[in-house]
């Protein structure tokens, strides 16, 4: 018996003709994008979402959804989405980036957008290194973790500790901000965080930011069980999942029309 009759259920907002996707086997991106697609479906906002992605592996999502999409430069998704939102507040803008884009080369954009309370949703995939460029150290690389630029393991003495990006963002974000960290290890929770983040934008409360712990077996050079061990056990030791900041008084009325 063939297995062709069993098709995984794709979110409605996924673009079918670009599947199978371009990510490596075992990559965390498609899992994050599945949760995001489901959240978009459940909110019924496919007609007014604009999706932006960075340089880096996230760029492979430029034709991933049946959503209007723009692929930008490293870390610049945040200002591009900010520019769109400011010009057309009726659109729902999602800036999708990696940890290099959000926490390093584009950190000023992420922090400033949070500080200004831009009504956009930033989603950051944390896989503890630069994947597209071949596995160099990122701000999120764990102490002792080997990368191409820390071949003997990251030494916090000379390269610092993993950047607490969520704390950084939530400390500058205003009252109406929603900041949470989920993981591909818990898709149900990740989806609910993404949905709340989008609702936060729709209710015009403020900035919303989701970090998603992701996986990169290609650059980690891990097998399936080692990969899951890294995501479920090693990463949470530094990056705790959960809601870090929720708007005072809940999320309020969601604006249904664009």
């Amino acid at each position: 018996m063939g297995n062709s009759s069993v098709q995984p259920v794709m979110p409605r907002s996924w673009r079918v003709d670009t599947k199978p996707h371009k990510f490596c086997p075992g990559c965390g991106h498609p899992l994050i994008l599945k949760c995001l697609g489901q959240a978009i479906d459940e909110l019924g906002i496919q007609d007014r979402v604009v999706f932006g992605c960075d340089i880096g592996c996230s760029l492979l999502s430029w034709d991933f959804f049946d959503l209007d999409t723009v692929q930008t430069h490293h870390g610049r998704t945040t200002p591009v989405m900010t520019g769109i939102k400011r010009a057309r507040p009726g659109l729902i803008c999602i800036a999708y980036m990696g940890d290099g884009g959000g926490y390093s080369i584009g950190v000023q954009h992420l922090v400033s957008a949070a500080a200004r309370g831009e009504k956009i949703t930033a989603v950051l995939a944390n896989n503890t290194q630069y994947a597209m460029t071949g596995g160099q150290m990122a701000p999120t690389t764990l102490p002792g973790q080997k990368t191409e630029t820390t071949p003997y393991g990251r030494d916090p003495e000379t390269t610092g500790f993993p950047l607490p990006g969520q704390d950084m963002v939530s400390s500058v974000a205003g009252e109406g901000a929603y900041v949470a960290r989920g993981s591909i290890a818990n898709p149900r929770q990740l989806k609910s965080f993404l949905k709340k983040a989008l609702e936060n934008q729709m209710s015009e409360k403020g900035f919303s930011f989701i970090e998603a712990l992701s996986a990169c077996p290609t650059n980690w050079r891990t097998n399936a069980s080692e990969t899951w061990d890294f995501v479920e056990r090693k990463m949470p030791a530094y990056f705790k999942a959960g809601e870090i900041k929720v708007p005072a008084g809940g999320q309020g009325e969601v604006q249904k029309d664009g």
């Binding site: 200002p79 520019g83 400011r86 922090v111």
Partner: peptide
């Protein structure tokens, strides 16, 4: 409208966002 951005990279990229949204930015 006006937005003061965090730097010129952002000023340029938000301008890009503005024109892609269909506004003279």
């Amino acid at each position: 409208k006006f937005l003061q951005t965090e730097d010129e990279l952002s000023a340029g990229f938000t301008t890009i966002g503005g024109v892609m949204a269909g506004r003279k930015a």
